[in-house]
Design a protein around this nucleic acid. Sequence first.
RNA 1: GCGCCCAUAGCUCAAUUGGAUAGAGCAACAGCCUUCUAAGCUGUAGGUUAGUGGUUCGAGUCCACUUGGGCGUACCA
Length: 542
Amino acid sequence: MKNYLASLFDEAAYKLPHLREIQISFDRPKIETHGDISSNAAMLLSKTLKKNPREIANEIIANLTIDSTKITKVEIAGPGFINFFFHPDFLAKKIEIILKEKDEFGKSKKHAGKRANVEFVSANPTGPLTVGHGRNAVCGDTLANLLEWTGYEVDREYYFNNAGRQMRVLGDSVRLRYLESLGDTIEFPEDYYQGEYIKAIAESLNNEFGDTLRNEEAEGKFKEKAEKEIFLDIEKTLQRLKIKHKSFFNENTLYEEKKIENLLKTFADKNLSYEKDGAIWLKLSELGNEQDKVIVKSTGEPTYRLPDVAYHITKFDRKFDLIVDLFGSDHNATYPDVLAALQALGYDSSKVKVLIHQFVTITQNGEIVKMSTRKANYVTLDELTDEVGADVVRYFFNMRNISTHMNFDLALAKKHSDENPVFYLQYAHARICSIVRAIENEKLAAATDHLNLLQADEELKLIRKLHQFEEEVLLAAEYFEPNRIAAYLEELAASFHKFYTFCRILGTEKNLAEARIALALATKIVLKNGLSILGVTAPDRM
RNA sequence: GCGCCCAUAGCUCAAUUGGAUAGAGCAACAGCCUUCUAAGCUGUAGGUUAGUGGUUCGAGUCCACUUGGGCGUACCA
């Protein structure tokens, strides 16, 4: 609809050149009586032309070539909106297109040929993924899906670091538990990893090696085994939510391939760094940031900033057209430094899209659960998946804008899980499948020869809703907002449930019945496609 | 103190990125199943969009300040 109108306006611009000077928007009015599409062109021009917007609107309309089989009415309303009413037959043609394109309907080639990298989860392997990581995992994967739907080839990437202090403590935690399992009396420090999984890893080392590791160092077998086991668990947890990364990028490779060393040299050569108090500093204040930051400590150890920059350079080297980083809000202070450094080195930092999602507050019986992997005070993502199922987990994290501070009442999620809106969507799909089963006995099939019979209010509203899908996918991808898809699907399902209630198929005259079947099947396709973007199943029965 | 994010119905969240009369779901109340799944539908009630000022044809949305919350603010990641 919008594309069609845009072409009409383009044509009119030959006669009204000032139409080219403004950014015309075509909106879907909230209120039905305002038409299918509304344009604000006249209001935007009223200032430059110093004329009443309604007068301008009249001029514009006079210069539009209106095909009455497509547009039935054009009117000027309110302060100067131009409202367009489309012909129902024209709108119904969408059903044919949907039935033809099936799984492909909604995909676009807008970014065909481009490559995107989406980095998400990226939790260091110190323990199981928590509900907190769940939001990052689900949103990251859904964003990657969305980009794929707009034509990108997407690499899902997981960045981790098995070198730092955290991992040393992890290895030593395992070592102590191992000694304990051998019968030694140990003192387990309070700031070590308290989780039961540490004991399990120690136990399996005991089974495998007996007491031969008594003098092994923490950073040897202990850390190695812990990292391996924990990563296996993380991957399994993600897999349950249908998340699979293409690559796991280890920070270590940046050292092994001398990327850190080279970067330091480049910073020095370009006069972007300096030495002070035995440390190396990056001149971030010259790059527009608040203050200079240390990139190599006086101990000779780099801070996280340095490998972060080096890591992002590898993303540029790997020729991605779009680089997406999804972090929790605890990282919000770090990325401006990385972006500034990249820009100073000549990389186009506008290719990097940093997304920050807010934290999930978990409440259990009215009390806030403070998550800490170290203190083993957390609810794991696996536990949540066990409790409510993968579809609910995925839908729950997808249904809200990533910028919201989300509340998650565990007790409520478990108790009222069947009140989750995801079932509302799935139920709509299952109902259509049920129709399909029922019509087979009645010798009925979908037919698009008499779509003009679809004139009931519920039918027309549903058709209009189907029109929106392609646009919603594009917008959700463009703004990196997966929740738009969830919101759209809820509206679509609502339109369908109303249609289902008021527009029966069995017992209706054949031509109308078959047109309704076509409409139902088109709805089924769009529901399924939308759910697949969210990573949620579309069941045939419920 | 400073930086980023947030504040919308009793609760959880939307609102086409500045559009016309701010919408859903829970919860509450009143209805609808001899007919394709009632995990559904219909209706009622619920709002000074935290507050004050500003920008303009037009503000929940943009700007400034205030209040209240989250996350940061390391030679931790």
